[in-house]
Structures are given as structure tokens and as C-alpha cells.
């Protein structure tokens, strides 16, 4: 099993490299097209002969890209923070105490796996509308302020936290609140950070709900602004690819820096 002929190993790497190309080629083509000028965009050249940035300048004049990027960051950070806060508290309660109704709580949490967003979108839309939050960032954030996925993930990680430490802290007279904030949270930082990254990426890529709520480009996250642009301007492929490139850059940068942690957090927590 461990001694392979060079030919076998060569074939194996060849296949994997081919698959890697398939995985990232669309991204390359996006970048390549975004740098081509008007006459070159409709050719299949692998490199732009004369790279131009006119597509980017056009895209920036057509859409408030900076504003939309800010919206995306604001929405994603708010969602992530709220989800982490609510799930830290809830997971702590579930790990720390035995209490009446714990089974019911778990049932409530687990059952949300069966609720697709499409089956709750109408009442949520009506509520956000009634609150006057249609076409606002807060309206996008609110329904995603709690994540059962985050609660159950943290619950699992907290369970492996040594109970002896908690008991010792209790004997030292630490309050329940400081056991959470001064003992458990500092010692599970990396887990919480991984979960935060994951929730940030999910929030950044959220589709259906922001699409329903964001009506104007000024109040839209990047993705939704891009969607409006794609659907309005069908033949400006150069600038469309430029705008798409811009929308991918933040996430790709985060991935480049935190690759290990991102992959680990997906493995640890899965997806929802």
C-alpha cells in the first residue's frame, strides 16, 4: 500500500491537479475577463493582451460598491456577534445545569433543522415590514440573530471542558457569570473563533432573505447589489466580472490568511 510505482503516483497527481484546475479555473476566468478591453472580452485568450482597469472604474460608477461592501461587513459582523452572544449563553446553560425542560429545549433546537427558510419567509417578511425595517440592514440581521447550529456546536465543544475546573472555580467563590466569562470563554477561544469565522462566511453568502429585504443598492449587501447588476445589465460582461471579482476578494483574502482555521471549522461544525 505504501510502495507505489512512479507511474501510478504520476497518474494520481495528474488527476488531482486536473480537478484543482476545475475547481479554481472559473475564478481565474473571472479575473482574466475583468481585465480585458471591450474588443478582447469576447475572445477566448487566456491572458489579457493589454490589461485594462476600465471595467473596474465602470463598475464602481454604476454601483455604490464601497457602500455595499460596508453593508456586507456590517450585516455579517452583526449577525456573527449576535449569534455568538446568544449561543454562548444558551450553550453554557445547557452544559452547566440540569433543569426541568432541558429535553424540551433540545427538541426545540434540533427541530429547527427541519425548518427551511422558505417556510418561514412570509410571516418574517410581514413582521419586518410592520416594524418598518424593510430595506434596512437591521431588517436583514434580525431573523439571523440566533442560530441553533451555533448553539448545538458550542454545546458540543463545551461538553469536553473539564468539569473539575468549573468545580474548583466554584469553590473559589467565582460566580456563575464569571465562570463563563473568565474561565470557559478564554479557554475555548479558538473554538469560538472558528465558529465565528464560519458564521461570518455564512452571513456574507446569505441569499434569499437579504434579497427579499434589500430593495435599493444603498441598503444592499454586495451579493444582492451584484444580483441587481447582473439582472439589469446583460451585456457588460467585462464590468460584471470586475464587480464579481470585487465581491469575491474579501472572502478569498480571509481564506488565504485563515485557510487552516476555516477548513478546520467546517470539519468541526459542518454546515447548515
Amino acid at each position: 500500500m505504501f510502495h507505489r510505482s512512479p507511474i501510478q503516483s504520476f497518474a494520481r497527481h495528474g488527476m488531482l491537479v486536473l480537478l484543482c484546475v476545475l475547481a479554481v479555473f472559473p475564478l481565474y476566468w473571472m479575473l482574466n475577463s475583468s481585465l480585458k478591453n471591450e474588443s478582447e472580452i469576447f475572445t477566448s485568450s487566456i491572458f489579457p493582451h493589454k490589461p485594462v482597469f476600465s471595467n473596474y472604474t465602470y463598475a464602481f460608477t454604476q454601483m455604490p460598491i464601497v457602500r455595499m461592501a460596508f453593508n456586507s461587513f456590517a450585516v455579517s459582523i452583526m449577525m456573527t456577534m449576535l449569534q455568538l452572544a446568544t449561543s454562548l449563553l444558551a450553550a453554557y446553560a445547557l452544559v452547566r445545569w440540569r433543569f426541568r425542560g432541558k429535553g424540551v429545549i433540545f427538541a426545540i433546537l434540533s427541530l429547527t433543522w427541519l425548518i427551511p427558510f422558505q417556510s418561514i419567509m412570509i410571516p418574517n417578511y410581514v413582521l419586518v415590514n410592520d416594524l418598518g425595517l424593510n430595506d434596512t440592514l437591521l431588517g436583514i440581521v434580525l431573523p439571523f440573530s440566533v442560530s441553533t447550529f451555533a448553539i448545538l456546536s458550542l454545546y458540543q465543544s463545551f461538553q469536553s471542558f473539564p468539569g473539575v475546573l468549573i468545580e474548583a472555580a466554584q469553590i473559589d467563590g467565582m460566580s456563575d457569570w464569571s465562570i463563563l466569562t473568565r474561565l470557559i470563554i478564554p479557554n475555548t477561544r479558538s473554538t469560538i473563533a472558528s465558529l465565528g469565522i464560519l458564521q461570518f462566511i455564512n452571513a456574507w453568502n446569505e441569499y434569499l432573505w437579504p434579497m427579499l429585504i434589500a430593495k435599493s443598492m444603498n441598503h444592499a449587501p454586495l451579493q444582492i447589489g451584484l444580483r441587481l447588476f447582473v439582472n439589469s445589465d446583460t451585456n457588460m460582461w467585462g464590468s460584471l466580472m470586475a464587480a464579481t471579482t470585487v465581491s469575491c476578494v474579501p472572502i478569498l483574502l480571509i481564506y488565504l490568511i485563515l485557510r487552516r482555521q476555516i477548513v478546520d471549522s467546517f470539519v468541526r461544525f459542518g454546515i447548515k
Binding site: 456574507w204 444582492i224 451584484l226 478569498l252
Partner: peptide
């Protein structure tokens, strides 16, 4: 090499559906 391949395969996963759709629509 294991980590390299897996990191490459993983890239499509983190991209937003809108960006992905725009690119494939062009392709």
C-alpha cells in the same frame, strides 16, 4: 500535497452563490 489539494478543492465552497452564478453564466 494533501493539504494543498484539499485547500484547492475547498475554494468553491466559500464563494457566494451570486458570484458563482455570475461567473458560470459568463462561462
Amino acid at each position: 500535497s494533501k493539504n494543498f489539494y484539499r485547500a484547492m478543492f475547498f475554494i468553491p465552497m466559500i464563494l457566494a452563490p451570486v458570484s458563482v452564478s455570475a461567473i458560470w453564466r459568463w462561462l
